[in-house]
Design a protein around this nucleic acid. Structure first.
Lengths: 362, 362
DNA sequence: ATGAAAGCGCTAACAC
DNA sequence: GTGTTAGCGCTTTCAT
């Protein structure tokens, strides 16, 4: 079933001079295409300053001169070396977005929101996967420190952000979804406490009394907030939540949700409803319940969180708390842009509305 | 349910001089932290060359001197400005990965593979979402042309790659998953023709004769190859595939798969099995079939493609063609690194093995 | 309207 | 071992 071919012809490398072929060189190899603004200037018979003016659409260039330059640019296939430009202008027009796991569909729509706003403002947005690892995150923050990017949006756990904030001085970044107001960094997110309460109250209204919570690792701030929302909603309903109803997972994988659900169903007085703090988890929960012979929602009801696109597709469709993912991303990007435009301004934290979406799983 | 707060204090901006506060400046604002190698040299009482040597771990620096420099670096919180370094060394140590849609979980594991190899070799990998749009893709290729990245891995449709290859001269990039050997760019992927055949033959072995194909847009090379594999497998079995069994979708969304499946079930002699060219599509198909009252696999069998993590979780679990996603990414990264190390070398195309994973949906 | 020249911060010869 | 200096390719005064 496996094989290799060697069909690919080497993509025609344009005249590269005569350096030794097997050398891990990197500069010499661009001699052909790598001409500079000076070369263009020579070809056009003008000065580098004039070429630069044309390139940057400045006033004060005679149309005839402009045309000459443009022609030379065209003829030579010249591209500005942005490394040089950026060194000179001290900005890169690159924005970084750090996510803990880009396998989680939850982030996709957020990132699209960021991307579109960034693009609208002439920035490139590049995505980094930190794996929720503080070391890797630090290395990405280093890209900022070392001037390779102008700003960053961080979706990593608050604990990591915390460490970062301490070390980062006044680096231009904002927090999205995960944030700690105390860190003093602009942020956008939702009211996790209330959202969790809404989920639990919905379950209560369906008559459930024993409600389980499948939560992520508690070093996520949202995990603590949602747990509190869950606990208080139960208390408010006169219910004393049992510790055995709660599980904390260090993963949001489907598998993690599946096995957690199975575990939760073990005791004779197991919960009749489960609130999972992400749709990926809840999807796994559905699977886990099926595997131990429980029907949803007849035997056990399930509420998820996020409203990722698969939530409506699975069987049964998932009741969930919808986050305004696109807007979260867009807002984060705007906050960052604001901060870049005016580093001294007081950029606010903002909370966006969530929404309970009722489907077949409850 | 919505509210805004203004809790965030402005992250202490270190002494910024006295420029007008409301200005969209960008250079002046870094005066405090933005000291250069010269500043460190002064503080340490050595020359810039020596500082550079220490920073780059060169030989020929007396331990005492090194310590002095390191102390100065530490004290000042100095960070190398990589814009300057890169301009000088003419490399950025940044790799770009372009995907058509990072909402598709299929790409996640591939990208992780790329990332880990890149990191091992001292490169950063940054992810770009092209939205399968030629214009956006071109703009990312421009990052290459303008020296902001050293190389790229492209997972976009072959048609787009084609256009790119024409215009890109000998830009350092490789293709992953989607590729056209004729384009002359190094690539890694699987044998889509055989994989599709394997899927169909599995369905045939289960006794199905009327087998539907839910395919993506035909301007993906893999779509054409899988279609051909499907057609030939049926022909080889003495079956004449009807046109009405085939659908082409311009999206891989769950929703697209769901409505396609419903449509496919309309005729009285509808297929008794469906081969969908991606697991996202197949997941939607399951939903679509449910919505028209068909049971899987009793009424209709379903085979997907990719083996993304959710495939095993849904009900019923999906029979699918597994792609070696991690290896695809790792191999792509290695090919690119090879190409960077030696631009003149003949980098081969490589095909990796796929695998039929049989689960409950067939 | 155009050109000359001074750097942006760094590395790498080349001296000593 | 360490310092001096010449660029990398660009933008931007300052002249003209």
């Amino acid at each position: 079933m496996s094989r290799s071919t060697s069909k690919a012809k080497p993509a025609a490398v344009s005249a590269t001079g005569d350096e030794p072929p097997a050398q891990p060189l990197s500069r010499a190899s661009r001699s052909a295409e790598g001409l500079s603004i000076a070369g263009v200037a020579r070809q056009a018979g003008v000065s580098v300053a004039t070429v630069s003016r044309v390139l940057n659409a400045h006033e004060n260039v005679r149309p005839a001169t402009r045309d000459k330059v443009l022609a030379a640019v065209d003829a030579s296939g010249y591209r500005v070396n942005e490394l040089a430009r950026n060194l000179r202008t001290a900005e890169s027009r690159l924005l970084l977005t750090m996510v803990p796991d880009f396998g989680n569909p939850f982030y996709a729509e957020i990132v699209r929101g960021i991307d579109s706003v960034a693009r609208q403002h002439g920035y490139f947005m590049l995505l980094c996967d930190t794996g929720a690892d503080a070391g890797r995150e630090r290395s990405y923050f280093d890209l900022l420190r070392r001037r390779r990017a102008d700003g960053a949006i961080c979706l990593d756990p608050a604990t990591i952000q915390q460490a970062q904030a301490d070390a980062s001085g006044a680096l231009p970044w904002v927090a999205c979804c995960e944030f700690d107001p105390a860190v003093g960094v602009p942020y956008v997110g939702i009211d996790n406490y209330r959202a969790a309460g809404d989920a639990v109250r919905h379950l209560l209204s369906r008559g459930h009394r024993r409600i389980g919570l499948i939560n992520s690792d508690i070093d996520y701030l949202y995990a603590r907030q949602r747990q509190q929302g869950y606990l208080d909603a139960l208390s408010d309903a006169g219910i004393t939540p049992l510790d055995g109803w709660r599980m904390n997972l260090n993963s949001l994988d489907y598998e993690a949700g599946a096995s957690a659900a199975a575990t939760l169903m073990l005791p004779p007085d197991a919960p009749t409803a489960i609130f999972a703090v992400s749709d990926t988890l809840a999807t796994g929960v559905l699977h886990g319940l099926r595997s131990v012979g429980k029907r949803v929602p007849d035997d056990v009801a399930v509420v998820g969180f996020d409203d990722i696109s698969i939530a409506a597709q699975i069987d049964p469709p998932l009741t969930t708390i919808a986050q305004p993912m696109r807007e979260l991303g867009e807002t984060a990007a705007r906050l960052l842009l604001q901060r870049l435009a005016n580093p001294l301004a007081n950029v606010p934290g903002v909370l966006l509305p969530h929404r309970l979406v009722i489907r077949g799983s409850t």
